[in-house]
Design a protein around this nucleic acid. Sequence first.
DNA 1: CGAGTTACACGGCTCGCTTACCGG
DNA 2: CCGGTAAGCGAGCCGTGTAACTCG
Length: 545
Amino acid sequence: MLGEGESNSFPSPKDAPDPEEKRKSPVSGAVYTAPGGSRYSTSLHFGSVLPPTGFSSAVCPGRNQFGPAYQFGQGGCLYPSYSSGAGGVTPSSSAGMRAQVYLCNRPLWLKFHRHQTEMIITKQGRRMFPFLSFNMTGLNLSAHYNVFVEVVLADPNHWRFQGGKWVTCGKADNNMQGNKMYVHPESPNTGAHWMRQEISFGKLKLTNNKGASNNAQMIVLQSLHKYQPRLHIVEVTEDSVDMSSSDPKTQTFTFPENQFIAVTAYQNTDITQLKIDHNPFAKGFRDNYDSIYTVPEGDRLTPSPTDPSRSHQIVPGPRYAMQPLFQDQFANNLPQNRFYNSERTVPQNNGLLSPQPEDSASQRWFVSMQQTGAGSNKLDLSSYEGDYASGLIPYSIKSLPLQTPHALSYYPDSPFSPMATGWGSRGSYQRKVATGLPWSPRPSPQGFPEDQLPVADKDIAQEDEISSSGGSLTSSWSDHHSPLDKADSAAYNGVCKRRRTSLVGPSTESSLNIKCEEDLTPTAIYTKDSPVTKSMAYCSFYMSP
DNA sequence: CGAGTTACACGGCTCGCTTACCGG
DNA sequence: CCGGTAAGCGAGCCGTGTAACTCG
């Protein structure tokens, strides 16, 4: 529970103007005043479509009845992992906007999940692989949200790897103390910001060191226990000083494929091999490195990090070299200088940039009704190998009572701490951000015109019924090609540091990207007029009621 | 004996330094 | 010749899994 003082320490959205909102001005003509006071031009296309208070609960009637919903236990535990039917879904009421969340690297998660995912925990902290990466839609563009991940016990058992499989072994220690939250370093920020591109938690570290509880980057877990990461989106309003359990503005999303068992050493060699095969940091252990990346594209989830035909398309120049993980996890060719904050480095059209040719097949990443079989703690992965139903089914959604003092206290404590960097990021990758305003939301890529966002949301509103087909993602096309963003990018400056006289690299970058996209996804046409991107194909769909 | 810890090798990246080149 | 710039090199760092070791 949040104390009064702690609550007050959390900056209010009204304390500082949103730089994104600033960019919306000046506008001509009538303006639409959002609930938060933000002013949007009517030219933003969405004012008449997107209700200020969010979607009607009748937008997708009956949807929940197909989605297996989680029941959230008390005290930070989560078991049983699933419950079925609509009964487990609580429609958000005053929360207004009902968010949709997509697990972006779901194929990879599924691969691990099939063998029971294991995550190494170490004293100094170990990053997750795969890491959590989400796309969000359905947020109020102007409202402010905290986004954070909580890792809770997935079941009440202690686990042990015996005879080549995981078996329960006594009861879990439910009294484990330590930090279980990881607040996204860009929190709080606007809905537009969160929906602009992928939200990844690559810097999240898992540890078994209870002394690391004060490290906001660490989540303290216990070895040989099964955990379930959960994503929380908490709307922050001027009067929402209390993120208590009764706060209806909290939306929680749980993806069963994110379950993992914390270990201090890998138990299942299949998991080890998957990690080696897919984690770019483990390249040194790929004895069959060449063979791995000479198999047909359709047979693997990730592109070759060293495939010259791809890497040269990804980003020209060493400073622009794609972080290996982006390739592996996102198959993205977004230049680094777009990553104003590496923690959320991938635009929503990551999927469209994927070099994988199986675009049509990638639609399978969506969860079908069958796959979300109610009452099962294990995903039905058979369809993963075969054909997926095209329909998207929400896993579950529930306005979850939370006790998240950390979520509120984090930002003021370390507004732009090094943890704000992302995977493999170095200092020069970090976008220089103004630190003058303690409250001011994390900066957004300036290259993305704010007035392009609502188009997608308009689509969301209109196509909510069919959103299960993955057609309502904010286009980040312009985000890829804005020279302003480049010029303003610290990474770009880093390039210029080495190539002071040549702007050829950055200026040709866009064309390279375009070419790359065309080359890699020859059947797809991606324009800013086509917000429906294939990126959704790589995301597991999850929608609030 | 099983679980946890630590040193190690590996790949990849950043960044400072050095060297070579070019123009005034 | 001097100053500015481009390019190359290598130390240092980070994250990874492995293997040997320690601990209970």
